[in-house]
Design a protein around this nucleic acid. Structure first.
Lengths: 216, 216, 216, 216
DNA sequence: TATGAATGAGTTTTCATTCAT
DNA sequence: CATGAATGAAAACTCATTCAT
């Protein structure tokens, strides 16, 4: 959980549970309605809270979007240790595994992500949200940076500006995920396999890990 | 202009002009704000109309989205005669040219299209809008069907279900356009060239018109 | 037609026809909707006029109610010569015949009268309308006054304050008409017959009854 | 309080109090203005609520009319136990006493009733309101049915179709009340005495309870 | 912390009225 | 006089947010 969303909490673990509750509830609501059609009350009730109680975890309706982003990044970050253990410090494997994990999260919370992806445009126009979002995405971007940096150190990949490469990888993930969500299940698998190959080719000048990725 | 949006006006040419005014105004507003942040009043004023006057051309705020779709399809349809003249009944050329024109329209009204693309999900949940949208998109889909049908007649392309191929082509266009809008100008050109090749390969099993398309 | 509703008119007979048109149209509309649910446009169109044209005959929506009253009184007044000829200056006959004619008019334009009867409360709270209404009803009340006065001159009826007796007779008519409109056709005939007897008894034979009436 | 008007409140006793507040406030407002001239805000403020708060107790402005009906019927129903105790199961006494109580309620909330009586026409054209109104009036009509049924069982009164007799009695009450509201206090007493006699004569073929009724 | 009634600013929408043609 | 597009004031209604309990 990111600092941005920490509000005075006596019992941090309870708060964590509540935020998860809210996140899942909002996800469910967004499968039925747009963010603007959905009311705060509706989301609170779906989360098992009273109308006003959600404001103990979020300062405004718009901040619910930040909570969404934070929760998704949280799920991804939780998966990192296992990924790192599994990929044995191989930067190529690690990058692809992280991307795959990201795609999984996005696909799992498809509607919420779609909404988030759309609303982010307008959120970013307000400095406060721009900053908050940046902070929330930080751990995710750092996770992507690790294998990229190591790959550069090992001479497997060449680039000057780390942030922009990270950004490119991220956009690739979200773009793909959104595109993929329009396709049928089988196509999706094929699609991702191609993507893996493409990423590998684009960023690492060939290699052969893509075949393994799909199994994960 | 589609029947769906005809309201009460007798002087159709005035109404046509007003709708265009509104369309352009809304496009401008959506470059600044989300559809839900923007008020009807704001859009009306931007169009040079008084707050309530927009309701002579649209029955509700949501119907403004239909007007957007209708106007975009209108621009595309207006370009068809020239395309048909230029492509001399060559189905491959014609299909690609229409797709290119569609991408142009989408790119020209980028923000409006992004909004439309997002809101359509919710619009389609309401039967009245679902029907209206279908009617509005009809001419565009028919335009795509023409070269596909002719291609099939000439044995250049093989498929059973026309509507689903049309749908696939359409999704390709809108998906690409949305993806492309995230990229820089130069990348976009490359992107489209690849697309053209891909479409050609996918739908016509090889050929060589993609190079010409990009010049258009 | 009463002065109150005369607006600058080049051709008075055309204007008269238009007012009748409007009156009948409004009557038809009020059979379907309440005065407040009905729009000025709707009433104008029903009368075969364009939305704004009705304002050449009426200064505001509320004034349409005056037009209604004026038209009804007009129909009654038009019937007077025939009534007078028929009743040969017999005050009892004449009074009853006028009341009957009034009931006919009210019954013919039932819905319009019901609306008028309801709205009059609020109309009368505004001095301008109070005055206008008074003027409009003037000819009708004068018509009632004639047989009453003659009856008094002939010693058939005794009262001091003419206006309050007229008012009482008028309230009897409108009250009866409204009550009668709830009853079935046959009952109505019986009802009116009883009324006629009652009026005659009350005003012309009863002696002391008239004294009570004027106090009300 | 009828189910039709139950909205979202758990604390029913608070809601009950609020509805009474609103009822009385609206009654006061309708003494000054027509239902259509009065704004929802005005009625809410008169009830000591903020502009939007009234919508926690009523779903639309029109539903305020249902609340009026419901409150009036409520007052009548509250009076029933006492009436039944007082009339010792004498159907004639009981029917007249209920009618008298109904007339009292109508007279107490004269303006509100007049408005209701007028608007009901239009309300009943919409099925939802028609049903709701029926439900609201149910207890009142049942109350009238009791003595009528018992009277029939005792052979004091003869009829085939209970509902239409109930309807007739109800129309008598409301018609009378509306007519009576035009008259001065003293006349009213006389009027009611006559009514009682009439009802008794009409429904019970003679008897002598009318004299007692007026004292109540 | 949790609740949910109350708030009132903000939006959509309607429509009586005006006025240039 | 007639028209009907345009106006904009006014109203109903919604709902994010607050706060006393």
């Amino acid at each position: 959980m990111n600092d941005v969303l920490k509000i005075q909490t006596v019992d941090e673990s309870l708060a964590r549970a509540r935020r998860k509750q809210i996140f899942l509830a909002v996800t469910r609501v967004l499968a039925r309605k747009s963010f603007h059609q959905a009311t705060v009350k509706e989301m609170a009730l779906e989360a098992g809270l009273a109308a006003g109680s959600i404001y103990a975890y979020v300062q405004s309706k718009d901040e619910i979007l930040l909570l969404l982003a934070d929760s998704m990044v949280g799920e991804l970050v939780d998966a990192l240790p296992e990924i790192r253990a599994r990929t044995h410090d191989d930067p190529r494997h690690e990058l692809l595994a992280i991307m795959h994990a990201a795609l999984d999260v996005i696909d799992r919370y498809r509607e919420a992500f779609a909404v988030l992806n759309h609303e982010v445009r307008y959120l970013e126009q307000r400095p406060q949200y721009r900053t908050a979002l940046k902070e929330i995405l930080q751990p995710y971007k750092e996770a992507l940076a690790v294998p990229l940096e190591r790959g550069r150190a090992l001479g497997l990949i060449r680039f000057d500006d780390l942030p922009s490469v990270v950004e490119a990888v991220h956009m690739l993930c979200s773009g793909l995920a959104m595109g993929a969500s329009m396709l049928a299940k089988t196509d999706k698998e094929v699609y991702w396999r191609e993507i893996a190959a493409m990423v590998e080719g684009r960023f690492f000048d060939g290699g052969g890990v893509s075949a393994e990725v799909e199994e994960t």
